[in-house]
């Protein structure tokens, strides 16, 4: 195996990983503010891509306008989920909330392709097909742009977390009761987190949809996002970036090296293996905080 191919695989993997990381960003954001895991993130990414397609192909908007419109719609949708279902579950055990978000995932996975059509939709961002040459390495231009945009958005999220609304979210994640007592509107902070999570998922959905087409399989991003969120630590946004690169590179290398040996399909399994190994070795992830429960 020559070094150029390995380098190509690793670089492509890192870019793909950054795009996975965008989905994971939403999971971490919601976990940080409300302490529940969002298993609906994959389906929300799928829905975002579908909505963008609907605006672009159905309403005939130019691509940039369709994306902006979809981001606004999905932000509202994220807040709507929180307002209508999640808020009723406050005080219920974690297992109930996890199952509820999984139920949302199933509902969307069925309803969105069911209503908008399950055939693959084309979503073109106008990125040329010609690859970029880096020495001996060939890099897909779509991956390059997608990975760059994703990494920029994740870094933007890290920066935003130091702004006023970010500080509010951190306060809420630290202690909901204490936040109440100093006048922070806890529910609104959680709703905003859901909104931003939906926006991040939409961005990822659009980027992936432009490459592989828009259909239900976009919701499979959930597994990769969960792996990234677990590996990086569920409550660490910088962890997302690091873990995204690790997961992406691992997946790309495993696909490139193992697939010819065992006959394909490794791509779908790498994320699962990373989840299990992380839980065995370091359950709170690379940057996560260990939680100590008091009676």
């Amino acid at each position: 195996m020559d070094i150029a191919l390995l380098g190509e695989l690793a670089l492509t993997g890192a870019l793909v990983g950054a795009m996975y990381g965008l989905v994971a960003l939403g999971i971490v954001l919601i976990y940080k503010t409300s302490g529940t895991a969002n298993f609906a993130q994959g389906a929300i990414a799928m829905m975002g891509a579908y909505i963008t397609w609907l605006f672009a192909a159905g309403a005939g908007l130019p691509m940039w306008a369709a994306i902006v419109a979809a981001v606004i719609v999905m932000f509202g949708f994220g807040m709507l989920i929180e307002r209508t279902v999640l808020r009723r579950m406050i005080g219920q055990p974690v297992i109930m909330v996890v199952m509820l978000t999984f139920g949302i995932e199933l509902l969307l996975r069925g309803a969105v392709p069911g209503l908008l059509g399950s055939a693959v939709k084309r979503l073109s961002l106008g990125i040329p097909q010609v690859p970029v040459f880096l020495g001996d390495m060939l890099i897909n231009r779509a991956y390059l742009i997608g990975g760059g945009v994703s990494a920029a958005l994740i870094i933007l999220a890290i920066v935003l977390f130091n702004s006023r609304s970010g500080i509010i979210m951190r306060a809420v994640s630290d202690d909901q009761g204490a936040s109440w007592s100093v006048g922070i509107r806890v529910e609104r902070a959680i709703a905003v987190a859901w909104g931003f999570a939906a926006v991040a998922a939409t961005a990822a959905g659009v980027l992936w949809g432009s490459m592989q087409g828009v259909d239900w399989s976009l919701s499979l991003l959930l597994m990769k996002a969960l792996a990234i969120a677990i590996l990086g630590g569920l409550d660490s946004i910088p962890g997302v970036l690091v873990a995204a690169l690790i997961v992406g590179v691992c997946e790309s290398l495993a696909t490139g090296i193992l697939d010819p040996l065992i006959g394909g399909g490794t791509r779908d399994i790498v994320a699962s293996v990373i989840i299990v190994i992380t839980l065995m070795v370091r359950p709170y992830g690379l940057f996560g905080h260990e939680q100590i429960e008091r009676v």
Partner: peptide, 23 residues
């Protein structure tokens, strides 16, 4: 009736049932 809709009906129904009962 759309064939897509009918194919996805079970999944929608499972999701809706889970959400409705949990809430």
């Amino acid at each position: 009736l759309n064939a897509d809709l009918r194919a996805h009906l079970p999944l929608m129904l499972y999701g809706a049932l889970i959400i409705a009962f949990l809430v």
